[in-house]
Design a protein around this nucleic acid. Structure first.
Lengths: 149, 149
DNA sequence: GGTTTTTTTATGGTATTTTATGGTTTTTGA
DNA sequence: TCAAAAACCATAAAATACCATAAAAAAACC
């Protein structure tokens, strides 16, 4: 799977359709499902997005936990119950459900934000503010990311 | 097997018929049994649903427990004795048995809730309350789900 | 290097199909 | 024979596919 990189701001039309950035579509192009899976973020006021195969990996990961585990309940409730699979139309657009738009405070335009193996969709202004905050957090405390094991 | 994602609220008609959401039917479409298996949840006031092949996986998983385990007795009683297989009619509807409706408190409408490899059927109001609770739980403590090994 | 041409991408509107849902008729089986 | 279940038919609403154009990016050209 190729990575979701960079940020792209696109307009919503009257029917709520919005183009998924071409470069994101390219990242999905060799998936069997030609579209994306979205769900409301429970950490930010934004929408989380990923490929279907990534979602299937999530399901496989939950299978390794106990089937009747109560912690798992909450997680699968938000991950799967809230998720929507949205196919691209011919020109590469999706219609973001209105409850998700409300959650993210998106009205007339949305910004698609690359997150590596996934992406997010934000209200453009809210994103810029959050981005500023992330920068300050990182300056205050350098993260401990290791590439070699 | 494709995943059960998202939530769909559908009405029951006077005869108790309710449409299984089209996307759920799609998840079942390459199964040999064109329908679903339901049983009463013993963790929530709802109905558990899955494909026949998932049910077979469950049977295989119970084999890993001791044959004369007393927990297994109760589990298999609910899983297999209580389970009903319901075929879709031409338009994709099923009739949910009345004891299951009573268990879930479903009267005039039901919400089909994706859970990844399975799904649930809830009273819509009860589901929304439970969902709110899950969201709060997750916000309080971020779950630790790892996809890489 | 700058200009023109071509291609890709984003966006707007319309037509078609699918889906949910209500009702009626036929079949089954007790 | 009668009631319950299954099959059949019809329709409105929602979702999806289709077509057409404008804007932007990339490529080709001088």
């Amino acid at each position: 799977m190729s990575l979701f990189l960079s940020s792209y701001e696109n307009r919503l039309d009257t029917k709520g359709r919005v183009s998924v950035p071409a470069s994101f579509r390219a990242s999905v192009s060799n998936e069997k499902f030609a579209g994306v899976v979205l769900f409301r973020s429970f950490t930010n006021n934004c929408i989380e997005g990923m490929t279907m195969s990534r979602m299937e990996q999530m399901a496989a990961a939950t299978d390794k936990m106990g089937v009747f585990d109560s912690e798992l309940d909450d997680l699968t409730a938000m991950l799967f119950a809230d998720a929507r699979q949205l196919a691209f139309d011919v020109t590469g657009r999706i219609i973001i459900p209105s409850d998700m738009l409300a959650h993210a405070g998106i009205t007339d335009s949305a910004i698609f934000v690359g997150r590596g193996n996934s992406f997010q969709i934000w209200n453009p202004d809210a994103f810029r503010a959050a981005q500023e905050k992330s920068l300050n957090n990182l300056r205050a405390a350098r993260p401990n990311l290791k590439i070699g094991e």
